[in-house]
Design a protein around this nucleic acid. Structure first.
Length: 481
RNA sequence: GGCGAGUUGGCGGAGUGGUGACGCAGCGGAUUGCAAAUCCGUGUACACGAGUUCGAUUCUCGUACUCGCCUCCA
């Protein structure tokens, strides 16, 4: 069995991964607060942990891995948006969740097995807070429930901070009802349009951190294998999760391995609204960057290092994927194969998700270029969630569709796509015939029409290959009929 | 102020205590109806200082610089 090694932020070492139960490997990743389109920074953990999900499924079996990623659908940012737009909170969060799933699907991210919404676990959160109070780790005060950081001796261990140092830093909210300035909110009162639920501490809503503790417990039990998220969440979010869960359920509970991806920058600078270099995944897709291209750029930097998103990298990624795709299609590499994933690629990914090294190996298979090597290239790409070539694209779409989504609409989309594909193939043959007869006028006419419709045709020494560009418009093919 | 990460050839980016990845760009050549590609060849890089060592880019300590988090945005 492949040995997986992961860098555990909790122990600050790279460790051999041994699941608690190899028949049910459990991974929880902090998901988005759903009030707006996901920006590309939000997408980095999604892609990183999607690769880990794929690796775990490969090693332990698809049915033996459970991946949960939450949606935070109760938050002041959502309340603000509701206030500004006059729309209901549920309306906003439903829409945003739909966007998120679409956009991440475009990046080739598989749907997690569980996608719990915070608002659906309010009773579990209240129960956990009550347990914490009963055990002396939390207290109610002025409509709030607060976690007492002094009651948990390991507070700060994950992020390497001490309560005293942080208070000295003075960036904590001073509130008269707090026993220690670092105490954080488990429950807070709601008024006006703020969403709220009845609780032992009054009508209110949960603080941010308690949801992950309560939901992971509900879905996975008190102990599970991997907890992931962005490095920015390490403190305070993950620190607080650990405090809550371990204070409630015991010192050896909660996540065994903590993983944090480094942040993303844009053209060398922090992405921020004030700098104006802030953009969503959707904007990038609409600008014509294919999902695989974005994914490839992400995977070309190790997750533990800051990643710089640049136009140049995106162009290079596009050229590479195009090159590989043409090679695979011109040699008609089989789409379905029982062959194993090449061990060098698998080992690279299994070594703390060294996707950059894995890509290097992919380059070498491309360079060798025999049909066998290209098959390995394909299989390696698949482990990384990169689908190259038409049939693979369709497979990806199928894989992404969850059971509920398999409606008529989707199937007819595929059907139409196949129709277009057949028509394109027919024209390719016609052009090849024209070339044989040295009727270059007709050959070029077809190429021009293809170009207008967004179909790129390339002649290689192994034959003609074609691919759809992001501007593919099937209706423009009609002109050739 | 606290915490952490990083500094590798023109650019990006792995990795290693001893035979200098890989990609892109550049340069030279090949191939090509057109187009776009593709193919071959080509580069003595590891911030600085000291230490450990037979030997350090790789380990240790220090210096400088960059960046991030702790603050609405991951």
């Amino acid at each position: 069995m492949t040995k997986i090694k992961l860098y555990n932020t909790k122990t600050k070492t790279k460790e051999v991964f041994t699941p608690l139960d190899k028949d049910n490997v459990r991974m929880y990743v902090c998901g988005p607060t759903v009030y707006d389109r996901a920006h590309i920074g939000n997408a980095r953990p999604v892609v990183v942990f999607d690769v880990l999900f794929r690796l775990l499924r490969h090693v332990y079996g698809t049915d033996h891995v459970t991946y949960a990623r939450n949606f935070t659908d109760v938050d002041d940012k959502i309340n603000t948006k509701a206030e500004q737009t006059g729309r209901s909170i549920r309306d906003i969060t439903d829409e945003t969740i739909g966007w998120f799933l679409d956009d991440m699907g475009a990046l080739g991210a598989l749907a997690p097995n569980e996608a719990p919404r915070a608002t659906e676990y309010i009773p579990e959160m209240i129960a956990m807070i009550e347990e914490l109070i009963a055990k002396g780790h939390a207290y109610g005060a002025e409509g709030h429930a607060l976690f007492n950081v002094n009651s948990y001796k390991h507070y700060g261990a994950l992020s390497g901070r001490s309560v005293d140092d942080m208070i000295a830093g003075a960036r904590v909210e001073v509130a008269p009802y707090k026993r220690n300035p670092m105490d954080f909110v488990l429950w807070k009162p709601s008024t006006g349009i703020q969403p709220g639920w009845d609780s032992p501490w009054g009508y209110g809503r949960p603080g941010w951190h308690i949801e992950c503790s309560a939901m992971s417990r509900a879905l996975f039990g008190e102990t599970f294998d991997i907890h992931g998220g962005g490095l920015d969440l390490q403190f305070p979010h993950h620190e607080n999760e650990i405090a809550q869960s371990c204070a409630c359920c015991g010192e050896d509970t909660f996540a065994k391995v903590w993983m944090h991806n480094e942040m993303l920058q844009v053209e060398g600078k922090k992405m921020s609204k004030s700098l104006g270099n802030f953009f969503s995944v959707r904007e990038l897709l609409d600008k014509g960057y294919a999902g695989e291209v974005i994914r490839f750029v992400f995977l070309s930097t190790h997750y533990s290092k800051p990643m710089d998103w640049t136009e140049k990298k995106a162009r290079e990624a596009e050229a590479t994927l195009r090159k590989w795709s043409i090679a695979i299609e011109s040699k008609s590499v089989a789409f379905y194969s029982d062959e194993p994933i090449p061990s060098d690629i698998l080992n690279a990914v299994a070594d703390d998700l060294n996707t950059s090294l894995a890509i290097t190996k992919l380059h070498s298979y491309y360079k060798k270029g025999t049909p066998e090597d290209l098959q390995k290239l394909r299989l390696g790409c698949e482990l990384l969630g990169l689908y190259i070539g038409h049939m693979d694209q369709i497979r990806l779409n199928k894989e992404l569709e969850s059971e509920e989504q398999k409606g008529d609409l989707f199937l007819s989309d595929i059907y139409n796509e196949k129709d277009s594909f057949e028509f394109i193939e027919q024209l390719i043959l016609e052009r090849a015939e024209a070339k044989l007869q040295k009727n270059y006028a007709r050959a070029d006419e077809i190429r021009t029409a293809f170009t207008n419709a967004g179909v790129v045709v390339t002649d290689t020494k192994d034959g003609v290959v074609w691919e759809l560009s992001s501007s593919f418009d099937p209706s423009k093919l009609e002109a050739l009929k």
